[in-house]
Structures are given as C-alpha cells and as structure tokens.
Design a protein around this nucleic acid. Structure first.
Lengths: 345, 345
DNA sequence: ATGAAAGCGCTAACAA
DNA sequence: TTGTTAGCGCTTTCAT
C-alpha cells in the first residue's frame, strides 16, 4: 500500500546525528570543518556520514549560510575561447568546497544571470554580457560578482579584461610591418562595437582605426560586420573579397569570425599569399596545421583563474572593487604573409 | 551605525503579501499559477511583485517542492557535438518554468552528477559518463535521470542514444565502396571501447571490425588509440602513417579525433587522395571548406531535445523506463576519396 | 476563494 | 566541547 521502494526518504542531518549519537549542531560543525569539535566526535560523525551515505542539502544550507555554489554565465556555448576561460575557472576552484555551475544565455544575458542569483549562488562570474552596468551594479549589491571581458569601471563588482588596445595594435603592427596597406577589419554588429560600450570589440575596432590612420592609410579603413547567424562571417567576407580593390589583409575581431572568413577565402581558392588573415583569442583551432591562424593570445584560462580568485576574495569579505588586466601576446602563424606586389606597379 | 546601503535585505514572499494585503499562501499560489486564485487577487499580487521586484528563492522552494532547475552534466567542455546536444536541451526548455544549469566534469563524472543532485535539481541529464550503471540506478531512485549516449538497459532512468552500429556501418560501406582495403580505426582508450561498456565507441569499434571481416579484410584491421591529452590523436596518427604499409583510409570514432588526425595528415603534406579520413558527429567544423570532413550526423540538438522531453515526462510522474534511438546519416565530403592505385600493381 | 500554521534541512547564537 | 533552539523563505494541508 505504501510507496515502498519507489522513493526512499532523503538522509538528513538528523539521521546522521542519531546514528552517531550526537546533536545536529555537532554534525553541522563537522561537515563545515568548523572549530570546536573533538577528534573523537569528528571520527564518529564521519563514520555515520559514510554509513548512511549522507549528502548535505545545498538548498537547506543556502537558506542559512552558503550554497557552496558559484555560478558562471556565458553568452553562448561553443565558443572555444570562453571554454578556456571556464576551464581556468573550474580548475581554480580545485579543492575549495565550491562547485561551479554554468548558465548558458542566448541573447540578452539578464535571464541567465538572474537565474543564478535566484538559485542563491555564493557568487557570479559573468562573461562579457550585454547587460547594463547599472543593472549589474544593483545585482552586485546582493551577491558578489566578477565580470569578465568588459572595460567598465564598476564600483560594486570586479572585472577581468584583456588589454584589447595592446592586442589589436600588435596585430596591426604585424600586418603593417609585412607591408599591408589595405587592411579590412571584420567585427560584430554596431551594438557590440559602440564606443563606450566597454566591450572588447569596441576597443579593437578603435585601435584598428587609429593604427590605420597613424600609418597614413586612413582612407583604406574598411569595417565589415558579421551578424549572429551561422555563416554570417563567411558571407560578409565573401562579399568583401568580391569588391574592388580587394583588401590584402583581414583583421578579424575574434577567431570564430576568422574561421568564418577563412571559409570564404578557402572557397575562392585563395591563400595567405593573396589574403592575409589574423584573428583574436588564439583558440586551439588556430594552431591546427589546416588553419594555422595568426592570432592574439590573451590566455583565457588565466582570466578564468583570476576571476574565481577575485570572486573568492569578495565572498571572503572584500568590498572595494578590484580590476585585472591581462597583457596579450601575438602568435604569428602561416595565415599572414607579405601582400602580393601591387597591381600595375 | 547600521549597515545601511551595504546589503539590502532580500525581498521575500512576506513582503509581497504585505504589499498586496493578502496572505503568503495566496502569493505562493500566484507565482506557481496554482488553481484557486481570483483574478483580482492575481492582479494585486502581480502588481506587488513588480513593485518590489520580488524574486522567489529557489532554495526555499526546493525545500518544499521543486527547485525549477534541471541539471546537465557533461564530461568536458569544448566538445562541439556535446554543445549541440546542450543547445537542443536548452531550447527544449523554452517557455517551461525550468532553468538549465550545466556541471562540467573532468574525469569520472560522479562528482559533477552528485553535485547536481546535492543541489536539489528536479532532474538530471547525464551525457555519456563513465559512471557505473548501478550507481546511476541508485541515484535515479531519488531524482529523475536521463542518460545520453550509453546503450544501457536501465530500469530507473531513461536513455537517448544514436544508432552507432548503423552509423559506423555507413562509414565503412562508404570507404569500402570507394575501394579502400587498408582502413584503420582511430578511437579512444581501452576503458571506453570495452565491449559491454555500453559506450558508443565500443559499438563503433565492433562495427568497424565486423565490416572489415565481412569484406574479407580482417587481416587489415588496425586500431589506433588516442589518449586524453591535447595532441594525442595527432601523434597517434603520425605514428600510424609512418608505418608500413600505410593505411589508405582512417575512420575516426569522432570528429575531434578526426581533426587531430587531419593535423598529422596535413603536416605530412598528404591529401584525401593519399589518405581518406572520416569522422563521427558531423560537427560544425566538419563542414568548413578548410576541413571538409566526411562524417556521421546523429543530430545532437535532437538528442538534447528528446532528453529534456523525457526528463519532463519523468518529473511529471512517469516511472517506466523509456528509450530513444536516433538514426544517423552519413555526410560525404572531400576528405574521403578513392585510394591511390596499389603499389607494384 | 482565502488564510493560518506546520515544517522542509540546515546553521548560528546561545546555554550548559 | 557539546547540545538546544530559533528561524531562513517557501509550499501545503486544513480551516474558514
């Protein structure tokens, strides 16, 4: 009659306390490694925990103290660079009692970030979201937040960024040094590159424009934009390469765009000798012999590690905002080469 | 003296009840869309919720009912195919009240899956973990579980798999049809391909062996294994291609291995005319012109969608196990071609 | 249709 | 050092 084997009742701290012949508080102290427990007590409780296969309820814990959970929001899955950041974050958590959970967004990240907060995570790492800084400031009053990849000047949260101006300048110096004059920049939509948005792409774009102007090629500035769709970068590049005069080099604002551009280049049967291509992020694929993409390494794992470190500091009590900027380095590969000799020269 | 602007007290259901001039129970009913609330009540409560910017605490809800959270465990980030599965799962959740969170594992997945259970998720999607089926059965007694990518015969949980035998046979029929005789198989370690493990790779390996034998090339069976390290597939392939006689085709057990193999092939300056290459999963990259990899499409998004659907059914009360097998289709691309003419013929 | 009250599993004062 | 107890915010009978 009773639902016998269907759903066993959960083992709680009370069961452990009874099994070990101690109080609930004692068990609580043991599982939190809190002070004030005798070795004997600890031994007995640990034994009871093992016997009963007890698992503390994160929800119940969250109601009184911490959930021992850190939430990480990403704009979308499948971006290799972001995966590196996440991996760095995960490793940094190492032997801490915290568990990392990831909330993937799609489009405006408010929902995913809010969902993490609703779940009483002890802290949030938000990666490059399009959310309003003011909104984040408010959220950060309630829960520790570290933002990765935005050049904001937050007062309630921390941020970790790459030095995008330096990175972009390295690319441009490399391309200009090879002799390129008609260098195009492939980036994302206007919303993402708007000056003052604080988004890395806006800094890379500006640096591109400034380098072109400084080299005296301001009139050759050509900005191409890819939308969020699958083959957008590929199509945009195909259109770019069909125009006259064709650029001799393309600086893509990140590797994913570059891979898309490479598809267009490959489809036209062109090589680095005709069109040079540089990316940003130095993802795993960039090093692949079939791709061999010149790219800027801003060490994603390190960014993830730093983000978690800062978040743990905040959880531990720090309230002054902290910033961290990572200096990138250029990885030169086969996708960039000197331009072909000028036509009619 | 009091901590004024530092940390505002959280808005609770009590605040909403007071603001709306109703009871806590009434508010609870409204936020759950439960029956027995008058339109007027609903209106007033909704208004109060908006005014106070109230967010229900998932932890508190989890203690009495659901957490409205579904957990998804993946063996590791960065696998494009798994990302497709996740994306399918995320979309399937669509307008349901459930939020998807992801727990990345590394190595044995017990920890990540357990972490999700500890957090009182309402259900778990586990992707191809190396965990003992018996362990999962026990867990599934306490929380709804759907397993993706293992050919188990579970009694307490559901599973979603691709038809790996059919997929592998399609690859082999294609390669044999092109005239290949010395076909090697690149796969993962012994633990993953052990017969009876239920892991897809074991089925793909077996199908490879059987197809070779059936075609009369049993003596040409050559299984190469890649470890978990970065360039393992690349190195293993390089060693394979250095041997004599060199195989004319390689069937990689999944695209990631194939991409690694391609690196070795490209480094030797070889093309599809010398060495054909086929993968499995038909990831985005396989379609890239610079890669153009023949691969088996088992529609990851559909697998994710199905997994979530089944999980929601279980949450709704189903207890009989359910299975779902997805039929794959072969995508032929430029990486496979007829073998070169036999030496000394 | 609405409200009162018990209690989910845990932590943190405080008492012993 | 150990135990007692009061909640955390919510859902859910059960009255009204």
């Amino acid at each position: 009659m009773s639902e016998e084997s269907t759903r066993r009742r959960q083992v709680t701290i009370v069961d452990v306390a009874r099994e070990a012949g101690v109080s609930r508080a004692a068990v609580s102290k043991v599982i939190r490694n809190a002070a004030g427990v005798s070795p004997g007590m600890r031994t007995r409780v640990d034994a009871a925990i093992r016997v009963l296969d007890y698992r503390p309820s994160a929800s119940a814990r969250a109601m009184r103290g911490s959930s021992y959970t850190l939430g990480l929001e990403i704009p979308h899955l499948g971006n290799q660079f972001l995966n590196q950041v996440i991996d760095g974050a995960r490793r940094a958590l190492g032997q801490t009692p915290y568990q990392l959970i990831i909330a993937p967004a799609d489009g405006p990240e408010y929902g995913a970030i809010q969902a993490l907060a609703d779940r009483q995570v002890d802290g949030i790492v938000a990666i490059s979201p399009l959310v309003e800084p003011a909104w984040l400031e408010r959220l950060a009053e309630r829960v520790p937040v570290v933002m990765v990849g935005r050049h904001d000047e937050p007062s309630n949260y921390d941020n970790v960024v790459g030095d995008d101006v330096t990175g972009a300048r390295q690319v441009m110096a490399h391309l200009l040094g090879l002799g390129h004059r008609r260098i195009a920049h492939l980036t994302e939509g206007e919303a993402v590159t708007a000056p003052g948005s604080g988004i890395p792409h806006s800094f890379r774009l500006r640096a591109y424009q400034e380098c072109m102007a400084a080299a005296g090629f301001g009139s050759h500035v050509q900005v191409v934009r890819a939308g969020p769709l699958e083959n957008s970068a590929r199509d945009a590049t195909a259109a770019l390469l069909a125009g006259e005069p064709r650029p001799t080099a393309i600086f893509a604002a990140h590797d994913e765009l570059a891979i898309g551009a490479l598809a267009a280049i490959a489809e036209l049967g062109l090589t680095a000798r005709e069109v040079s291509l540089a990316g940003y992020d130095d993802t795993e694929l960039a090093a692949h012999p079939a791709i061999s993409l010149t790219s800027v390494n801003q060490s994603g794992p390190e960014m993830g590690r730093r983000a978690v470190t800062m978040l743990l500091e905040r959880i531990a009590g720090r309230t002054e905002p902290s910033r961290c900027s990572i200096t990138p380095t250029l990885q030169v590969r086969a996708s960039t080469a000197p331009p072909p000799p000028e036509d009619g020269s």
